[in-house]
Simulated scan of single mutants.
Amino acid sequence: MTGRFSGKAVLVTGAGSGIGRVAAHLFARDGARVLATDVTDGAGETAAGHDAIAAMRCDAGSEDDVAHAVSEAVSRFGRLDIVFANAGTIGSFDGLFELDAAVWADVLRVNLIGPFLAIKYGARAMLDLEIAGSIVCTASVAGLRSGAGGSHYSASKAGVINLVQTSAQQLAGSGIRVNAVCPGLIETGMTRTIYESAREKGVADQIGRLNPMQRGGEPAEIASVVAFLASDAASYINGQAIAADGGLSSSLPVSRPPRLGRTAI
């Protein structure tokens, strides 16, 4: 099989659904061999019917699990070129005073320690194999500023953005690039309740109306950004957090401007 990832090996965490599943399929379609991991049985479903995709259970916030997943990828494929640290959890929708430290700890474990572990073990394997690879982490527009998630979720994603910056610096000279994608509101398993609630109330057409595209996003739209960052086409992009949010983060909150062609007063 030929393609932009031909001959390359990819590890994807959180590949059991949503962005991770679509990304795993995209990498495989473009020639890569993929190890899809998830804490659920969803990784097996992602791999079903795809000869280029293998699956295993992995808790992305467990050091032993991540170390084993990286080792398994290298053992299966003989190399590791790309790591997509995608696994995440939203935690809860509770407010600041309703949240307790246990919820915070679990969200940070998965959303921030998880990417740290993926970078730690993924980069170590790449260095050992003398591969100038690419690591991409899923952050969020919630990590850029307030208004897109709870305090625990937002803080964890802000940490991911800083993590890719500091990791890129600490891997200077290795050729290994570390970047993040910052999705806006995307319909995935994690946001299912938001979408289902809007549909039940008959206001599904209001989803995403705060961004200039005036719609929510699709997992494939984020996966395509991930694939770009992982590819040789992004060979000079390093330590960056790329927002893919329909333009949501391009503005501070304002009232909706008048329609095109009308003069503002």
Score class of each variant (00 low, 15 high):
Ile186His: 02
Ser92Asp: 10
Gly95Ser: 10
Arg29Tyr: 08
Ser140Gln: 09
Ala102Arg: 06
Gln165Gly: 10
Arg192Gly: 08
Asp64Gly: 07
Ser197Asn: 15
His25Gln: 11
Arg145Tyr: 11
Glu221Gly: 15
Arg215His: 12
Ala148His: 08
Ile119Gln: 02
Gly3Gln: 07
Ile119Val: 05
His68Asp: 09
Ala142Tyr: 06
Ser71Phe: 04
Lys8Pro: 03
Ser92His: 03
Thr37Trp: 00
Tyr153Ala: 04
Leu96Gln: 13
Arg256Leu: 13
Glu218Gln: 15
Gly3Glu: 08
Gly133Met: 00
Ile82Lys: 00
Ala102Met: 05
Leu112Arg: 08
Ala52Cys: 14
Val70Gln: 01
Leu252Phe: 07
Gly208Val: 06
Ala155Val: 14
Arg215Tyr: 11
Phe93Lys: 15
Pro253Cys: 13
Arg21Asn: 11
Ala118Met: 11
Ala54Met: 14
Asp128Glu: 15
Val66Phe: 02
Ala24Phe: 01
Val74Asp: 00
Cys58Ser: 04
Gly246Val: 08
Gly173Phe: 13
Ala15Arg: 02
Leu171Arg: 03
Ser197Leu: 14
Ile186Phe: 01
Val34Pro: 00
Gly149Ala: 12
Asn211Trp: 10
Val181Ile: 10
Val34Gln: 02
Ala73Gln: 04
Gly91Ala: 05
Glu187Gln: 12
Gly20Ile: 03
Asn179Val: 05
Gly133Asp: 00
Thr2Lys: 13
Glu187Ala: 08
Lys120Pro: 01
Asp59Leu: 07
Glu200His: 15
Ala172Ile: 12
Gly7Phe: 15
Leu171Asp: 07
Thr2Gln: 11
Arg4Phe: 08
Met190His: 08
Ala125Gln: 05
Phe5Tyr: 12
Asp94Ser: 07
Arg256Thr: 12
Gly175Pro: 06
Ser224Asp: 13
Ile186Lys: 02
Val136Ala: 00
Thr188Leu: 03
Val203Thr: 11
Pro219Trp: 04
Cys137Arg: 01
Val70Asp: 01
Val254Ala: 10
Thr193Ser: 13
Gly49Met: 13
Gly150Asp: 04
Ala234Thr: 03
Phe228Gln: 01
Ala234Ser: 07
His152Ile: 04
Ala244Thr: 13
Ser251His: 11
Asn162Ile: 09
Leu108His: 08
Ala139Tyr: 05
Arg76Cys: 07
Ile113Val: 12
Leu260Arg: 11
